[in-house]
């Protein structure tokens, strides 16, 4: 129980917010808008899971927003060229993996600091995309939205994919050797190396995985509407890093789990609709989000102090 104190406290805050909403704005709990909210956040959740793994190995990737945009636009263009959904998905995931592998190679093989490398790819990918597309929308063929099915079916499918990603990764982290390696490398790379783990491979692997998940998330976002805006994904990196941190993934590596990330993302995602329901003016949104992040890290700090 104590081990999961951090995750439980996030869940507690989330429940507190929901209770407050139930009291002050019961309208918040309507099936359709809630399902819509969850579906809109599903791609971010998938990226956040990948990000959590990267942070657990003591690295960071701030280029995911740009990767997301590139994958979205390429997926949209492929779809417009008439490729089927499965092919588009595979190619987008492959493209994401390649972009992730580029970061992973620079970080793991050359030993460059991840925050700087991904700062470079963040700017280069975003501006490269602007250069080629000049911000123009991509129009998708009609049968592409909701995977060619009804809206309800499509939303359920997307939610199922997101849950599947969380469950699989979470289970792998806990019960499979590779998953334990992630924690081992993040806690102490040198000790991990001495015990026969290859930290560089693990680091490379998590970057590729994050890239692949970002590609998948891009498709999950693209199928939700009939047009792709090249700007989509702008600022995604901050959102998912914040979700991971609020959800209890330690930025110093080796600690955290995906359920915490899930609750963290939900908490942050609820802020904006909650403000609308509580009739709070939009000017305060960024300040409130910043406050939540600071509270979460302060809680982390207090915990660290008490243990020490």
């Amino acid at each position: 129980m104590k081990r999961y104190a951090r995750e439980i406290s996030v869940l507690g805050v989330l429940l507190l917010l929901l209770c407050f909403l139930a009291w002050r704005a019961p309208d918040f709990f309507q099936a359709q808008p809630l399902r819509s909210l969850l579906t809109r956040e599903a791609p971010a959740l998938v990226v956040a899971c990948g990000m959590a793994l990267v942070i657990m190995t003591r690295q960071i990737d701030i280029s995911v927003g740009s990767q997301f945009s590139v994958c979205s636009v390429v997926a949209g263009l492929l779809a417009a060229e008439g490729f089927s959904i499965s092919v588009v998905t595979m190619l987008a995931v492959a493209l994401g993996s390649v972009l992730g592998a580029l970061n992973g190679f620079l970080v793991a093989a050359l030993g460059l600091p991840s925050i700087v490398v991904t700062l470079g790819t963040l700017v280069a990918l975003r501006q490269g995309l602007n250069l080629v597309r000049q911000g123009e929308f991509v129009n998708l063929p009609d049968q592409f939205q909701w995977l060619g099915q009804s809206q309800g079916w499509g939303q359920n499918a997307l939610l199922a994919v997101a849950v599947l990603v969380v469950v699989t990764l979470s289970w792998t982290l806990r019960h499979v050797a590779v998953g334990r390696y992630v924690y081992a490398v993040g806690s102490d790379g040198e000790a991990a190396r001495l015990s026969g783990i290859r930290p560089k491979r693990v680091t490379f692997g998590v970057f590729v995985l994050l890239g692949a998940l970002t590609g998948l998330a891009a498709v999950m976002n693209v199928v939700q509407s009939p047009q792709v805006q090249p700007l989509s994904g702008l600022g995604l990196e901050l959102k998912v890093i914040a979700a991971a941190v609020v959800g209890g993934v330690a930025i110093s590596g080796g600690r955290g789990n995906l359920w915490g990330v899930f609750f963290g993302l939900l908490l942050l995602a609820c802020v904006s609709p909650a403000m609308i329901h509580l009739r709070i003016e939009a000017y305060w949104e960024k300040a409130i989000q910043g406050g939540i992040i600071l509270l979460a890290v302060a809680a982390e700090g207090l915990r660290g102090r008490n243990q020490a």
Partner: peptide, 20 residues
């Protein structure tokens, strides 16, 4: 509500506005 010139964000904001 601001949407930061993002279509996706406008969609989320509109959804919340309708339910609120």
């Amino acid at each position: 509500r601001p949407c930061d010139d993002l279509k996706d964000k406008a969609q989320s904001e509109a959804t919340a506005l309708m339910s609120a």
